[in-house]
Amino acid sequence: DSETFQNRTRTNFEHLERLRNRSTYVARSCKEIRDRYGDEEDGLYYLTTANGMVYQTFCDMTTAGGGWTLVASVHENSVYGKCTVGDRWSSQQGNNADLPDGDGNWSNRNMFGTPEGATSDDFKNPGYYDIAAEDMSVWHVPNNFPLEHWSLAAILRYHTNNRFLSLYGGNLFQLFKHYPVRYNIGSCSNRGPAIPIVYDHGDRESTRMFYGPRSRNEFEPGFITFRAINNERAAMAICSGVKPTGCHTEHYCIGGGGYFDPRQCGDFPSFDWDRLGHDQGWS
């Protein structure tokens, strides 16, 4: 009858509208997609930058009200490779004090990887520098898991809720302009901000246990910290889940500049100091 027909037409029209909105690239973040179009499904969406560059990324539309845009992943292809191929978040050019910024990817507009490959290789999209955000969310997902299982497979998930990014320019690109990830930029006491986190999977204790026994004595879980500097003046980008209280941050902070004295250079700099997976020393 005509009512059914009208309902069906309306539903169909709404569906087409949604598709059109997705394919005319009118949103700059997953939050905008959720707020403007009411899309509540996790998955890949098209976004656009201020300059009109179109890209696809994963939206988490579930966690704490949803609207989270995946902008980057840090993946360790080999913890034994020290600032070699694949260490895009530190340096792929060798451990070199003459390249204090390393590859410089924490503070440039370079991009690499694909959203579907984000657990198999490093990933960075234009959202990293284009989106004006308030908060961050971090997922630690076992390597090579496919996108549809990321959330369930994650060993740790948390987010911030105090809008700290607004204070630092709205994204990490701007934050790291205030706090360069550069060798010899300062000393251990020149650490960047440590922001309290809300756990979505895991807790303070499980966070503690992911790191080595000696590391556990020099951080406080329940935070995300930016631009840590160690005793040897190497800079690291993010201490995920913890706030350092000591200066051996190379054992539990990720990403970095281009030089670590003497040998720890890498995206996961010295997570293997006392070998891997033995629950001893710094490992």
């Binding site: 973040s29 997953c30 939050k31 988490d60 609207g67 989270w68 845009t69 995946l70 902008v71 980057a72 992943s73 840090v74 993946h75 360790e76 913890v79 984000a118 657990t119 198999s120 959202g127 989106i131 955000a133 308030e134 908060d135 961050m136 969310s137 971090v138 997922w139 630690h140 997902v141 076992p142 390597n143 990321w150 994650a154 060993i155 740790l156 987010h159 990014l165 994204n171 990490l172 246990m209 992911f210 790191y211 080595g212 590391s215 993010i238 995920s240 054992h251 539990y252 990720i254 996961f268 997570f271 293997d272 891997l276 997976g277 629950d279 710094w282 490992s283």
Partner: peptide, 15 residues
């Protein structure tokens, strides 16, 4: 650090 940690990718999101 634990093997679990080093063999997991760190995914960063904004909102």
């Amino acid at each position: 650090a634990s093997k679990e940690m080093t063999e997991a990718a760190v995914l960063l999101f904004y909102r």
